[in-house]
Design a protein around this nucleic acid. Structure first.
Length: 584
RNA sequence: GGACCCGUGGUGUAGCGGUUAACAUGCGGCCCUGUCAAGGCCGAGAUCGCGGGUUCGAAUCCCGUCGGGUCCGCCA
């Protein structure tokens, strides 16, 4: 080792010892006659001092600059009384350098390593290896490690084993868009990178593993968001001989212990509330939502129907949220809110503000009977200072807009406490969603999700009413995990394939191995897959998952550091039997 | 595929129709023995992402383009 101690290690009791430290020059303070540097490594900062009496060390120290990598031999000693630094873990002590060796010099860096200033993200991503030296990224990667190592220990203690599954697998076009990898050995054929190890973990259950987990990389070639990267990490897990509550209880226990162990975030409700999908859509307009605040969506169709106002009368329904203390919004702010609602997919947004003595100002008062307005205001339980926001549309469209608006208003009102984790479950999803364009049923989760046992007969009569044995974990407006009890019966699986319009031959080609496996003694099984990036992001209080990924991709799915993706050489393409289209 | 925001010395910002393009920090030099965002003095460093247009005049207005970000679509 090139060092005897880390830079975060020395304390008063080390005084008198000769130590060797190595790390980066975090900061240099040159007093002419006396030079200080703060030496940094991953574990902390230690002040090094050079005295002109030590001529050789002093000379090298005076040439040091930020981010030089140096090795320093010296004597640890208590700092002179009054010059201790209480803000530094090692602040009681300093190392008087006797030998200083530059291991590698450094040019001035393109941005500051030693302070927490905003830096353009293009630069951070291009020089990610420098960005990783900064406190923010270092802290986040340590946290991420703590998350995964907690999970590994917790699940191992519960009898789970970690099993790796292939990255080169088979395309499943019915999911997200696949990343394809051309085969050299099989001209014209392609592997796909897994969107998740779904089939493989089920086959591990057929293989008798019973309790499996994996910190698994998943790949989806879809457009990016702050919480979505083309490759991301799931805690993928699966258990045999379980029912829905077994999986949910395990996750609830593990996540509660995890959050309390690796962070100081508070969990809002224990045990976690459960919502049916229908309740969630009614109250929050979305299957992911935030329960750290109220402002639930209320259906006011019974008041607005038959008012003579066309916007209300012609819409399937009208829904509203009540934003407290927003009645003072100016006309300009309200207009901006209307525009915002339109970007969220609304045809329009109506507002009404409640002033002193119940006086109501609104954008639609001219067209809406006064007595109806009174009923509306009282039905919504408003008080002075409230701003009512209404959307008249189809039930799902109105809910969707107000669900987004609800979160936006809560942000403005600072009702979303970042120190609180509001976990909740969503259950009783419909097994299928009707796809109007294709005139067929689409699985609302994935095609291996089992119906609830009591709803299996509905598959023959009213498939739209069948509920899936699915459970989603929601936290602070993010979908944190999705899971289900799976189908383990060939007949049932074939029926689902049939309902979603998968021709027999296609089902056989794509999923024949699954169907066949179900004929060789498949245990009932189920699992779940929490997103590690999103969880870590929330625990770190970060606004996007790039901050908890060492080398993330840009919104255009590019690696700005290495310059991926990049062109392949002609001989590589030839070996892969690939010819580029004209104009590419 | 669509909407919106951003791009000015190395970095972070100001300037928003006429400025010698400002400030902080970093960088280089000199001074300085107890600092810890050390301090003081001096200096270098930007054709304002790129291309076109409007104008007597463009960092500033318009169009296009590139890069980054946010959102909609998409994400079984």
């Amino acid at each position: 080792m090139l060092k005897t101690h880390t830079c975060g290690e020395l304390r008063a009791e080390h005084a008198g010892q000769t130590v060797t430290l190595a790390g980066w020059v975090n900061r240099r303070r040159d007093h002419g006659g006396l030079i200080f540097i703060d030496l940094r490594d991953r574990f902390g900062l230690t002040q090094i001092v050079a005295n002109p009496q030590n001529e050789a060390a002093y000379k090298v120290m005076s040439d040091l600059r930020s981010e030089f990598v140096v090795q320093i031999v010296g004597k640890a000693r208590a700092r002179p009384t009054g010059s201790e630094n209480p803000n530094l873990e090692t602040g009681a002590i300093e190392v008087e350098a006797t030998e200083v060796k530059v291991l590698n010099a450094a040019k001035p860096t393109p941005f500051y390593i030693n302070e927490e200033s905003n830096v353009d993200e293009t630069l951070r991503l291009k020089y990610r290896y420098l960005d990783l030296r900064r406190e923010r990224m270092k802290k986040n990667l340590v946290l991420r490690h703590n998350v995964t190592s907690f999970i590994r220990k917790y699940l191992s203690d519960k009898g789970f084993i970690e099993v790796e599954t292939p990255i080169l697998f088979k395309t499943t076009p019915e999911g997200a868009r696949d990343y394809l990898v051309p085969s050299r050995v099989h001209p014209g054929k392609f592997y796909a990178l897994p969107q998740s190890p779904q089939q493989l973990k089920q086959l591990l259950m057929v293989g008798g593993i019973e309790r499996y987990f994996q910190i698994a990389r998943c790949f989806r070639d879809e457009d990016q968001r702050g919480d979505r990267q083309p490759e991301f990490t799931q805690l993928d897990m699966e258990m045999s001989f379980v029912e829905r509550d077994d999986v949910m209880n395990l996750i609830e226990g593990m996540f509660t212990a995890l959050v309390e162990s690796v962070s100081d975030k508070k969990i809002l409700h224990k045990p976690w509330p459960r919502f049916t999908y229908a309740e969630a859509m009614e109250k929050y307009g979305d299957d992911k939502f935030d329960i750290r605040f109220g402002m639930e969506i209320q259906n006011v169709t019974s008041v607005t129907k038959g008012s003579g106002f066309r916007v209300f009368d012609e819409a399937e329904c009208a829904k509203a949220i009540v934003a407290p203390n927003c009645a003072s919004y100016s006309r300009k702010q309200l207009d901006e809110l209307v525009e915002l609602a339109k970007t969220m997919g609304a045809k329009g947004l109506l507002w009404a503000s409640v002033g002193a003595n119940g006086e109501v100002k609104s954008s639609f008062g001219k067209n809406f009977p006064e007595e109806k307005m009174k009923i509306l205001v009282s039905k919504l339980n408003t008080k002075e200072g409230d701003l009512i926001l209404l959307v008249a549309d189809s039930s799902s469209a109105a809910g969707s807009v107000l669900g987004k608006l609800r979160v936006e208003m809560a942000d403005r009102l600072k009702l979303r406490d970042p120190n609180v984790m509001a976990f909740c479950w969503v259950i009783d999803f419909p097994l299928f969603m009707w796809n109007e364009e294709e005139k067929r049923w689409d699985p609302s989760h994935h095609l291996f999700t089992s119906p609830l046992p009591e709803d299996i007969p509905l598959l023959d009569t009213e498939p739209g009413k069948a509920r899936g044995a699915q459970y989603d974990l929601v936290c602070n407006n993010y979908e944190m995990a999705g899971g289900s009890i799976r189908i383990h019966d060939r007949k049932l699986q074939e029926k689902v394939f049939q309902l979603i319009g998968l021709p027999w031959e296609v089902a056989q080609e794509r999923f024949g191995h699954m169907l066949e496996a179900f004929e060789y003694g498949t245990p009932p099984h189920g699992g779940i897959a929490p997103g590690i990036d999103r969880l870590t992001m929330l625990l770190a209080g970060e606004p996007n998952i790039r901050e908890v990924i060492a080398f993330p991709k840009s919104q255009q799915a590019a690696d700005l550091m290495a310059g991926a993706p990049s062109v392949a050489e002609a001989h590589q393409l030839k070996e892969l039997h690939i010819r580029l289209a004209d104009g590419v």
